[in-house]
Simulated scan of single mutants.
Amino acid sequence: MKSHVWRPLFVAVGLVALILLARHVLVPKDFGVGERGYMYGWHREGNEAEWKAVTVKYRTTAYCRECHGEKVESIGRSPHGAIACENCHGPALGHPKDPPTLTIDRSRTLCIRCHAKLDTPSSGRARIRGINPETHNPGAECSLCHDPHHPNLEELKRHGQT
């Protein structure tokens, strides 16, 4: 065969050999090893202790319910019930000891993530009422007019049902 066939073949074989050598040097010996081979994907037995030492930053709504049961039940019945408390109130790591109260994100950008009007409503997200953030009270926090724990309250007031 001519050299124009052999040269690319040698380059390809060389690249494969280089990748296998790099894998042998860089990938830990216990990577993916388990009773049934690569059953756990990116699992590595050698760093289990490291992962057990990692402090979990976020809790669950069940953690919030322990002290704030009434609030959790109330918001659970609202359209915002599917949103985890920590999306607005920040991570509960160390709460209630340090900090005694959580930081509340009252920024417009938090609300606009879901409530910006969609130009091309083609997903389930289109069912959420949207606003134009440039014309709807620009610069004001949404919580000045809207209660995120009772998002339907304003609509009920408009229809005289409260």
Rank of each mutant, 00 (worst) to 15 (best):
P138F: 05
P79Y: 05
P151F: 03
R44S: 02
L110W: 06
P151N: 04
T103N: 06
E73R: 15
I83P: 00
D98C: 09
L144E: 01
A17Q: 11
K57R: 07
V5F: 02
G32R: 10
H80N: 09
D30Y: 00
C88T: 08
N137E: 04
R65S: 13
R113F: 01
A140P: 00
T55C: 01
V11Y: 00
I83C: 03
V5R: 08
R7F: 02
L20A: 04
I128F: 15
V72D: 10
I128N: 13
H150M: 09
V33Q: 05
N152L: 08
L9R: 01
G32M: 02
L118V: 08
W42V: 11
C67G: 07
V27W: 03
L18R: 01
H24M: 09
D147R: 14
P121D: 02
N47E: 15
T55R: 07
V56Y: 10
P28T: 05
E154A: 01
A116G: 10
A62D: 08
D119Y: 10
V25H: 06
L18A: 11
Y63L: 13
T61W: 06
L144P: 01
M39F: 00
K2S: 12
L26P: 05
E141H: 13
G69C: 13
H146R: 05
Y40F: 09
F31C: 08
A116V: 14
G90F: 07
R158N: 10
G130E: 00
K71N: 07
G94N: 12
E45N: 04
V11Q: 03
H136R: 08
A12E: 11
K29V: 03
H149W: 13
V33C: 04
V13I: 11
H159N: 13
A126P: 00
R113D: 03
V13S: 06
H115M: 02
R125K: 14
K97N: 00
E35D: 09
R127K: 06
R113L: 07
D105Q: 12
G130D: 00
K29T: 03
M1F: 12
H43R: 11
E70S: 07
A82K: 12
S3M: 15
E154K: 00
A22M: 12
E141K: 10
G46A: 15
E70W: 09
G139W: 04
R77N: 08
T60R: 02
E48L: 08
G14A: 15
P121R: 09
S107C: 01
V56C: 06
F31L: 05
C85L: 13
G32T: 10
N87Q: 11
M1W: 07
V56W: 09
P133L: 07
A84R: 14
N87G: 11
N152C: 02
R77G: 05
R77L: 04
R129P: 01
E45I: 03
G69E: 14
L153F: 01
R44F: 01
D105V: 14
M1K: 07
F10I: 15
Y58H: 08
H89E: 03
H150G: 09
K52M: 08
H4A: 12
E73I: 03
L118H: 06
G41K: 14
D30F: 02
R65H: 12
H43D: 01
H149C: 06
G130P: 00
